[in-house]
Design a protein around this nucleic acid. Structure first.
Lengths: 307, 307
DNA sequence: GAGTGGTCTAGACCACTTT
DNA sequence: AAGTGGTCTAGACCACTCC
C-alpha cells in the first residue's frame, strides 16, 4: 500500500510529529486521487502498526511511542522485598513513571480449569481471587489476577486486604510458613481479545503478553497462580538464567561429606525434598523434580528463620 | 461484526472442521444478503484472529491450531548438553515433532547497533553471524541469528561450520576457556514485519515473539548475542526463577570460614569475580553485578575441568 | 472457462465531535 | 451545521487456481 507507506514515512521522518493530526480521509482522497475505501485501508494499516490513534468524529493522530518498562525476573528475589513497596510500584518509580493500581475484585471465585490444574485441585473449586489493573502515567498497562487456595484466605487475613502490606502477598505467605522456593513463569503472546483491548485501551489487533506464574513452596506445592495480561508494546521481559543450578551443584557432585542430608543423588523421586548444609550457619532446602523431564530445582534458604 | 462471529462460532463448534473450506465470498454474500466488501471484512477478521488461512484463487480454509512448543529456560543447563544433539532438535523430538534446521548464512557481518552495545563493541564492527531458520513438521517456526566477536571465529574454527558439533556453539565456547555463567534473555512481543511474516509464513498482523539472549562468561563478558524471532502462536516460553540466588547465599550470609575467597560481601564492585569453594572438590565461580541495580549473579562451576 | 480471492471506485447513509 | 470517521452497497476489473 503506497499511501500507507507514504504516511508512515512522514511520521517516522517527523514531518508528522507525535500528537499531530493525520490529514483527514477526504483530504487524502483528494491529494492522492483515490476513493474513501482506499484511504481507510491505508489508515487502518497505520493503526494496526501502532503509528496512529484514530477517534471517531475527530480524526487520526500520530501516537507517541509508549514508554517501555522492563520486567526483570530478579523482582522476586526475597532480598528485594524489604523495600516495603509492592514490586510493581518500586519498579515503576525507579523507571520514572507514575504508577497506580486499581483493585477490581478481591474475594471468592471458582477456580478456572487451568488454574486448578496448576494448583492440583479440581476445576471449579473455591479459591481466593485478587484482580487488579495497573496503570503507568495514567494509561492502563496490565491486568492481573492472583488465585490462592481458599484455605489461605482464612489462614492469612491480610490476603483479603486491598494492600496486603510490606512485600506483598508473597511476604505474607512466607510469614505464615509457606516458604517460596521458586516461581515458574510461562509466557505467551497473542492478539488481544475485545475485552482485553478495551480494558487496556488498545486498538483491536494489538498484541498482548499473557504471563502465568506459579509460586512454588519448598514442599513443591503451588500456593498461588498469577495470571497477567500485558500490553505487549509497553514491556520488555528480562530473565537471567544460570548455566548451572544450585541443585546440580549440591547433588550431582557434592556427595558424602554430610553435605546433602536428604537422599543420595540418583535416588531422587519425582518431587524430592532434600536439605543441604553449607559452611557457615546456612541451611538450604531444595525442592526438586527429576526423571526424564530432568527439571532443575528451586532453592529456598530458611536461614532468615533459623538465624 | 455479526457475520464474522457467526462463522467463528461454526468453526469453534466444529461445524467447519479444520481443513474445511470456508464458504466462498459470493456464497456468503448471497446467504447473508450483503455485498462483497462486507464479506471480505468478516473473513479478514477471521484471518487476523488466526482461525482461517486464505489462498488467492482457491478460497479460505479453517486452520488447524498449530502445535505449541514449550521453550524452557532449563535448556541451557550444562547438564543437558551431553545429549549430543542441538538443543532445538532434542527438544522438538521429545515433543513428538519432526524438526529441521536450514542454515541461511554463516560468515562475517557488521554488528547491528544493539548487538554491538550488548557485546561492548562499537556499532559496525566485524562480527561472525550465524543465521538459520527452524522448522517443525515442515512449517517454519523461528529464525535466529547468533552474533559472536570475529576473534572467536579465528580461535574456534568449528563456529564456521553448519553443524558446530555436540552441544552446539555454547559447548565449543566453553571448551575454549569461555565458561558461560549465565544467559540473559529479553522478551518482547510485537506484530510481524512483512519480511518476518513471509519468512515464517504468517498472515500479516500476526504477533511474533522477539527474544534476544546474551551469553555471559565468568568474566562478565558477553561473547554471544542470539537474536530470535518466533511465531507467537507456536511457542510457550517457560522460565524457572529461584527466590534466592546462589550469589546471595554465598556472599550475603556465608562469610568467613574461607568460603568466599574473593572479596568480602559489601565490597563487590560493579562487576566482580569471586570464587567459592564448596565441600567436596567443587569450585564455584561467581560473576556478579551489584550496585543500585542490585542484579544477581550467575554461577559457573569449573568442576568438570578441574576434576 | 469458471470459480476463487484482491483491489478499487462512486456514492449513500449513519454516528460522533466540534463550533 | 459542518466536518470527521464508520459502514455499507453495487459494480468493475484483475490475478490466481483448478479443471
Amino acid at each position: 500500500m503506497q499511501i500507507a507507506d507514504d504516511l508512515a514515512a512522514q511520521i517516522r521522518a517527523g514531518v508528522l510529529a507525535p500528537g499531530a493530526q493525520v490529514p483527514s480521509e477526504s483530504e487524502v482522497m483528494e491529494r492522492y486521487g483515490v476513493s474513501q475505501g482506499t484511504v481507510r485501508k491505508a489508515i487502518a494499516e497505520l493503526r494496526t502498526v501502532g503509528l496512529v490513534d484514530t477517534h471517531h468524529g475527530r480524526g487520526s493522530y500520530v501516537k507517541s511511542p509508549p514508554p517501555v518498562r522492563r520486567k526483570s525476573s530478579d523482582r522476586f528475589r526475597r532480598t528485594h522485598r524489604s523495600s516495603g513497596k509492592a514490586a510493581y510500584l518500586a519498579e515503576a518509580e525507579q523507571a520514572g513513571h507514575k504508577p497506580s493500581v486499581h483493585v477490581l475484585y478481591i474475594g471468592p471465585a471458582d477456580a478456572p480449569a487451568e488454574v486448578a490444574a496448576r494448583m492440583g485441585m479440581t476445576a471449579g473449586e473455591k479459591v481466593l481471587a485478587r484482580r487488579r489493573r495497573y496503570f503507568s502515567d495514567g494509561a492502563p498497562t496490565e491486568e492481573a489476577t492472583s488465585y490462592l487456595p481458599w484455605s489461605m484466605a482464612a489462614e492469612i487475613p491480610e490476603l483479603l486486604d486491598e494492600n496486603p502490606g510490606k512485600g506483598g502477598i508473597y511476604a505474607r505467605l512466607e510469614e505464615h510458613g509457606h516458604a517460596l522456593v521458586e516461581y515458574v513463569e510461562t509466557v505467551q503472546a497473542r492478539l488481544a481479545s475485545k475485552q482485553e483491548a478495551s480494558a487496556l485501551r488498545l486498538s483491536p489487533g494489538s498484541p498482548v503478553i499473557h504471563l502465568v506464574r506459579d509460586a512454588v513452596t519448598s514442599g513443591g506445592r503451588v500456593v498461588e497462580v498469577c495470571d497477567t495480561v500485558m500490553a505487549a508494546d509497553r514491556f520488555i521481559l528480562e530473565y537471567r538464567i544460570a548455566s548451572v543450578s544450585f541443585f546440580e551443584l549440591a547433588t550431582d557432585r557434592v556427595t558424602g561429606e554430610g553435605c546433602v542430608t536428604g537422599k543420595a543423588p540418583g535416588q531422587l523421586s519425582e518431587r524430592s525434598h532434600v536439605s543441604t548444609r553449607l559452611p557457615g550457619s546456612l541451611v538450604g532446602h531444595l525442592s526438586c523434580r527429576t526423571g526424564p523431564a530432568a527439571r532443575t530445582c528451586g532453592v529456598a534458604d530458611h536461614a532468615d528463620r533459623h538465624a
